[in-house]
Design a protein around this nucleic acid. Structure first.
Lengths: 188, 188
DNA sequence: GAGATAAGCGGGGACTGTCTCCGTTTAACC
DNA sequence: GGTTAAACGGAGACAGTCCCCGCTTATCTC
């Protein structure tokens, strides 16, 4: 599963440089950051960039996997500290914060929960879905979450909440409010 | 308020052609459709397009104002046929359908409810906000909608629901489901 | 260490899209 | 019909994506 042939030293070096620069660039300019510019800033030719990461999507994913996996692990930490219902809410909050604050992660998280996505987001997608599943099932067992809902639906709705919060100039407060509106519903 | 000087005949002709072609192009290729291509298809130079519509946003808005205003009027029709709570739900449903199906309208509706938007969406924005306000207040008076919520928040959340539905390959069924999850909340 | 060799590099260039500038055309008014 | 200002339109500067292929170099072998 892991790299059968070890990368050549220069290849590995360039790969890492690109990743680091890309994360900065995406954070700064959003997912539309210029790829040729990233290559330049990393001190490599654009050919090198495109060889390592055939698509923007691939680079985006590689640049943020660790952050996303951290989010997956965070789910378990939170689960230890809070009762299931609250844990889910808190995790969704942190997920939304990440979605909005780290420009460029939105597209990535979005396609991770897209139905029929082109199997692109394997790593990120499974990590997110796993975390969501654990929290959702726990909350359902506890009885603080409706039974008829799938983990992936929760992720999609959270993405929707992030979008809505963004429209409202999303500071943490907005996210909290919209998340709680979702949890409690719009009825009185 | 309205055009002080009437447009020259050729200008008016080109303006209309552009609008018609633009609506088709955006519907077909999404909001990213090539502007030069729209100009070409309308049989005018790109200079003409940019003179009439300085930004993509401006063209997008002009191409869809009538559709959006129809949505505004639809609110009142629905209000006559259904009790306030159901009317709001039905209107939000139609709003989401429009958001998703007519590619290119999403960006427009999004920026119409963005906090601190650059005063771009005056026409569309006020139309939407007006319709939302009428339905929201009626539902609140009836007691089927929480009191502590603003019309614009409902619009933003609806946009979020549309986004979530889109991720789920949004057919009408998904939209209905996610909307009702929002209305009723995620609690059991 | 020297040589062989394939993995990896990188930048030139084709292509697509945006947007402006300015010489030319033409509708509108007399 | 002649004048004039409004409107046209396309050439071209610029920015981004992405591929191709001759050159460089890390690694392996002796």
């Amino acid at each position: 599963m892991t790299q059968v042939k070890p990368m050549r030293a220069d290849a590995r070096r360039n790969y890492e440089r690109l990743l680091k620069v890309a994360a900065e660039a995406f954070a700064e300019h959003g997912e539309g950051a210029s790829l040729d510019d990233i290559a330049k800033r990393a001190g490599v030719g654009s050919g090198t960039l495109y060889r390592h990461f055939p698509t923007r999507q691939a680079l985006l994913e590689a640049a943020y996997v660790d952050r996303i996996e951290a989010l997956g692990e965070r789910a378990d930490e939170i689960a230890k500290e809070l009762p299931p219902g609250e844990a889910l809410a808190e995790w969704l909050y942190e997920l939304c914060v990440g979605t909005i604050q780290v420009r460029g992660m939105k597209a990535l998280l979005g396609s991770a929960v897209t139905d029929g996505s082109r199997a692109a987001l394997t790593a990120c997608g499974t990590s997110m879905k796993g975390a969501a599943q654990r929290l959702v099932e726990a909350a359902q067992r506890e009885g603080t979450l409706r039974q008829d809902i799938e983990p992936i639906e929760v992720l999609r709705l959270a993405h929707g909440v992030a979008t809505a919060s963004e429209l409202a100039n999303g500071q943490g407060k907005q996210i909290r409010r919209y998340l709680s509106l979702l949890t409690e519903g719009l009825r009185p």
